[in-house]
Design a protein around this nucleic acid. Structure first.
Lengths: 212, 212
DNA sequence: ACCTGAACACCGTTCAAGT
DNA sequence: ACCTGAACACCGTTCAAGT
């Protein structure tokens, strides 16, 4: 699969300022995220990331145990951005209505997937899920979960949603939101770039209605 | 990532019967599916598949253009099994009620993901989706789509679901089902092996109710 | 037709130094 | 502390044959 790179190698990887106190770590994460965005996670290479930054490919091992750990750090960063975007979108509604707030969170979630498909795939890829996970990622997933759950609970407390002590209503919302994000990212449903938000509102609106 | 395989190589890859008229093709697909099930798609290797069958690693190129094509064939096979399972489960209900039939299809979908997580991931992975797809896979996805869509339409015709000419109701169902399958496969919701069907009924029940 | 073997240009990771 | 360089055991894929 790894198509041979062009024969002509750049004359010299211009030596950058030396990295210290964690700069290299940051630089590696950023480079990895950029490469993944360009070629996908399967084609991502530790050596290419190092090359881009201008350090020896072994330098990464000072900051990450292995390739998987660097990818985990990229996923972590993605979860932080996703959570932040969801909070921002929720706050942007200025509404106290849990239905409106859930839709806002869903818009952020789906938009993130649509705009950063490869990043989203790393975040929900096999290495970081399916058990034997990375604690830092698990913590962020839990945080995102609670963000939504608070709205679902609020809806029940206000009497907008049918009361239910179990996780089913929350899982229904999360599943629909995650599935919609996946379908959009896979271009299995195709919705024009600017209309993602409107689609989310329509489709998630139906799901949220099922909680009443 | 590719952990060095154990130093000790099996004494001799026992020479099997020679493969002709497409036997090797089948054997490769089966071996690939088996390996993926054991170690995941990222760790899957063309050379290992050939090794297992007992042929030179170059033999695969007689039947597949490259590694991606073999994986596409594995995905195709998976879609065929998934569709068959859904039909079987739908028929098993013996019901004409579209809600019950949709839940049956969803059970098959989620069960498949829970039982064959790596296979499911290949089927919905970047190479076969996100545009520039494989025609054979697209055709099977379309077939699966129509399977569900027929039930959604039937529900509208009977007056169980609110009429809607657009794709939104169908997308809502598909998204929820796909998302639930993903969450279960990722063990992000954990439901005991034997209780997957019951969970699907509860959660998808809420979503389907949103179509009324 | 179908399979093999050697070679090439990559990888991730380990070991042993360099400053 | 932080980075480098050479080496190892893999890959996918191409070229050129073998039967």
């Amino acid at each position: 699969m790894p198509a041979q790179r062009p024969r002509q190698r750049p004359p010299r990887p211009r030596p950058r300022a030396t990295y210290h106190h964690g700069d290299l770590r940051r630089a590696l994460i950023d480079a990895a995220a950029a490469i993944i965005g360009e070629v996908g996670a399967e084609a991502f290479t530790l050596r290419e990331a190092s090359r881009r930054i201008g350090v020896n490919h072994r330098a990464a091992y000072r900051h990450f145990a292995d390739k998987a750990s660097l990818l985990a750090a990229v996923a972590e960063q993605g979860f932080r951005e996703l959570i932040e975007a969801a909070r921002r979108e929720i706050a942007g509604t200025g509404a106290a209505d849990p239905e409106a707030r859930l839709l806002a969170a869903a818009r952020a979630y789906v938009q993130f997937a649509a705009r950063h498909p490869a990043h989203f795939r790393v975040m929900f890829g096999p290495r970081l899920n399916e058990g034997g996970n990375v604690a830092a990622v698990d913590a962020l997933v839990a945080e995102a979960y609670r963000l939504l759950e608070a709205e679902v609970r609020a809806g029940m407390d206000r009497g907008s949603f049918a009361p239910d002590a179990g996780p089913h209503p929350m899982v229904a919302v999360w599943a629909a939101m995650h599935g919609l994000a996946s379908l959009v990212l896979m271009k299995r449903v195709d919705v024009p770039e600017g209309r993602v938000g409107a689609w989310v509102d329509r489709i998630m609106g139906r799901v949220v209605r099922g909680l009443r």
